[in-house]
Simulated assay, not measured.
Amino acid sequence: MTDSRGASLPDSRGRTGLDRTGRELDRNPDVVVRDVEVTSDGWHVLRRTTFDVRGSDGRWSTQQRETYDRGNGATILLYDPERRTVLLTRQFRFPAYVNDHPDGMLVEAAAGLLDEDDPETAIRREAGEELGVEVGALTHVFDAYMSPGSVTERLHFFAAAYSPVDRTGVGGGVADEGEDIEILELPFTEALSMIADGRIVDGKTIMLLQWAALQGVVAGRSPLP
Rank of each mutant, 00 (worst) to 15 (best):
F94N: 03
R93S: 14
I183E: 06
Q64I: 04
D202K: 11
T89R: 00
L78G: 06
E130D: 10
V217Y: 05
L46N: 14
A161H: 04
W43N: 14
Y162H: 07
M194A: 13
A74L: 04
E126A: 10
M146E: 06
G112K: 04
L78N: 08
T189I: 10
T189N: 15
F94Y: 11
R167Y: 00
E153T: 15
R47S: 15
A160C: 05
D103V: 07
V135Y: 04
G216W: 03
R23P: 00
S150A: 05
E153D: 01
D26S: 15
A109C: 15
W211D: 09
L46D: 14
M105D: 02
A160G: 04
G216H: 09
P223S: 02
D69I: 04
T67Y: 11
R154M: 11
D41P: 06
H101Q: 05
G136I: 03
E182I: 07
V33Y: 07
S150M: 03
Y79I: 02
R167L: 04
V107Q: 05
S8C: 04
Y145P: 00
E190F: 01
V135S: 06
M146N: 02
G169Y: 03
D118V: 03
K204R: 12
G172F: 04
V201G: 13
G169M: 01
G216L: 10
G17T: 11
A7M: 05
A144N: 02
G17S: 09
R48S: 15
M207L: 09
L131C: 07
M105C: 06
R23A: 13
P119C: 03
V36D: 09
S40R: 12
R167E: 10
G132A: 07
V107C: 09
P223G: 02
G71Q: 05
G216A: 12
Y145S: 03
E177C: 10
L113P: 02
Y145N: 01
D197Q: 10
L46R: 13
E185L: 12
V165L: 07
R5A: 13
R13S: 03
M146G: 09
E126I: 14
V133Q: 00
E129L: 12
D35E: 14
G136L: 01
D176S: 15
V165A: 15
V151D: 12
G178R: 11
L214G: 12
E116R: 14
P95Y: 14
Q91D: 08
L18D: 05
G169T: 06
D3M: 13
P164N: 08
D166T: 02
T85L: 10
G112L: 06
